[in-house]
Nucleic acid binder design. Sequence first.
DNA 1: CAATAAGCGAGACGGTACGTCGGGTCTTCAG
DNA 2: CTGAAGACCCGACGTACCGTCTCGCTTATTG
Lengths: 217, 217, 217, 217
Amino acid sequence: MSGNEPRPDTGGPEQPTQAEPRPHTGRRRNEAARQAILDAALRLAGAGDGEPVTIDAIAKAAGVGKQTVYRWWPSKGAVLLDALIDRAGQDVTAAGGGTLREELRSFIATTFDAAQRDSTAAVLRTLLRESARDPHLAELLQRYTATRRTALHELLERGRGRGELAAGADLDLMVDQIYGLFWYRFVLGHGPLDVGVAERLTAALLPSPSTVPVLPA
Amino acid sequence: MSGNEPRPDTGGPEQPTQAEPRPHTGRRRNEAARQAILDAALRLAGAGDGEPVTIDAIAKAAGVGKQTVYRWWPSKGAVLLDALIDRAGQDVTAAGGGTLREELRSFIATTFDAAQRDSTAAVLRTLLRESARDPHLAELLQRYTATRRTALHELLERGRGRGELAAGADLDLMVDQIYGLFWYRFVLGHGPLDVGVAERLTAALLPSPSTVPVLPA
Amino acid sequence: MSGNEPRPDTGGPEQPTQAEPRPHTGRRRNEAARQAILDAALRLAGAGDGEPVTIDAIAKAAGVGKQTVYRWWPSKGAVLLDALIDRAGQDVTAAGGGTLREELRSFIATTFDAAQRDSTAAVLRTLLRESARDPHLAELLQRYTATRRTALHELLERGRGRGELAAGADLDLMVDQIYGLFWYRFVLGHGPLDVGVAERLTAALLPSPSTVPVLPA
Amino acid sequence: MSGNEPRPDTGGPEQPTQAEPRPHTGRRRNEAARQAILDAALRLAGAGDGEPVTIDAIAKAAGVGKQTVYRWWPSKGAVLLDALIDRAGQDVTAAGGGTLREELRSFIATTFDAAQRDSTAAVLRTLLRESARDPHLAELLQRYTATRRTALHELLERGRGRGELAAGADLDLMVDQIYGLFWYRFVLGHGPLDVGVAERLTAALLPSPSTVPVLPA
DNA sequence: CAATAAGCGAGACGGTACGTCGGGTCTTCAG
DNA sequence: CTGAAGACCCGACGTACCGTCTCGCTTATTG
């Protein structure tokens, strides 16, 4: 396949395909090993070739013993999730500072967009796959999605606080409509997840005042 | 997919746990074996004890050779999906004959309800689990969900035809909001899927005319 | 490999590799089917490609249902043995009419020769293979070898009757020395089975009086 | 973690029927597992009940995963052969120190005897069975028989060196007469393999000078 | 001539064993 | 004392044949 470049001190996050020796660090946790594992996990999960992403495969690709993986993560999926958060977690942090409508549309569009990037998409899919088998990962994933829901929920709350949303609006329902549609389309792939959809979804959730006086006077 | 004749004799459709011999049918497919396999699959998947639902287990529980399973279904999940459609598919057939609002609320509530029944829920979860590993099942599952979406889509179309929905309404988006929320909550289990939610979801999608004159004229 | 001898008409003429329809014969045994099965068995066993020679394979190659095989032969090996006897059994019939030494050498040489012919060799090997698994075939094979031993025994007896062998000679032992060496070399293939060996074996068993003093002094 | 009960030297080579846990040895091959596998293989093959001696059965009886068998042996028969050599190989080592006639008779008798012991006979038969299907084992078996032939050949050579055999004697032929008769009778079972036969076979191969005139005057 | 009785091609069936794969635990050994 | 290496036990996988079975057909014999 590809030639083996040295991967000098693992500051470099790129393993070409296989790993080569990395100095032991004695009694303390080897950060380089941790990085190598996360890298390898992302790389394999993101390869998109539908390979099963075995623990053995990750360990081998990272040039690491299986035990070193199990020592620090409880399951394969935990590694993946960790990798995802480490690398791709900050994407949708959705800086505020506009109308609710603008913020929401931006949030949704950014979410859609982040998931479309090939590597992330593959990792997400793999995560879902694995979470089906691994209850532990399922819980981690649930916790992770909870943080995303909370972020969105707070965005909506801020909007409601500014009076841009009816006081009785069911924010949880709105959040789940957004993320539900997102995951549903993401997993099944039967419909687009682009800016247009983000736009229309925003519109559907926040009927424009001119046509639909949802908001109190 | 296939019509189910009642399997008239054999009286009890319940094999307690193990099966008893069943007559050969020569070179024709043995319908009794098919039933036994589907029964066993549902029984095991619905047991809810989180057991992995092996093919060996299904075959053994059905009193059938493994090859007989593989002869007719390409994968474990295909068996489950077939079983699900055969047994539980007709639940949400959404009888018509009311206002769009009533029909929609009923459809959603029925969908939620069907998935809440323990046996169905377990089967659905097992299906998701397996579809993670098995691309073929994933496609089957996708096809199945497509039929459900179509059903819902037609319900909405009829409503629009009766003028109960704006001509420009994005029906696909609405469908995915509904099923998206459903699957999202079903899988993650972070929120309820009860009648109240069905109600509020309906309301969110069909704003009442008094408060929101969405409809023309 | 082996040339295809014509197998002149047989009624059901040439299967090239696969069979074509052959008329049913109603309630009596279909001789054409029998021939087709024996042919197919020999062909497969003699192919030498090391294929396992399945019953299914024989049936398919003969254009015959499995049951038709099982109806007439108790096991795969029985088919092979039957085929072998039918086709190749008469080879070593060892016409008499010389001195014992000449007859014996001829018998041995003919035996060696017959087994060397590629098609026969492969069938024999397959027979041995299968007889290891199939006790029934083992018995058949034993019966068959017994007839060969008897033939050889009678040859020796005739020689002894003519005074060409000591009255106390252990004919059974001699027979087994000959056939033992034959099978041993045939199966393991570590030594030749040619005319020279036949010659030397004969000499070893029938020491010529003139050269008898094998031992020096 | 590692608190396993001692079983300090494994001295007792007999697992009654089922095995008990054995300590891991980390990344080195587990010798205890190897022993357990060989023991189990011999035990099962020697049971004489004609059971097919499955790999699963060996693994289970040895308290070992199937993979551990396949990791070290290419086939079932290789295990058996290994076991045979390990356990029973030294039997016929043919101590020297007599006349050729005595040594040869002893060698043959010992060989016959070893094969008659029930456990060994069953193992041998199983080996033959398996070597029928497994070309790899066939080769191993061939190699093994070659070592036996060599041993016998050397015995004869030593005799010839001492002048007890004619310089032109065809030792290979003699060897194959001996082992040929042995295997022939062993496999077919149509004649005895006892001391008397050993005696007569020796006499046939080494005609005593005094009695040489086999042929009538 | 119809009815009967088999042989026949076909292939599904209940089983058993196969050899492979991946998971998670364990111990050794190099640094 | 860490981390690599990899053997270990386990159990599911999907395949290959086995020998049995029933079907629907064809045809020779019988009544």
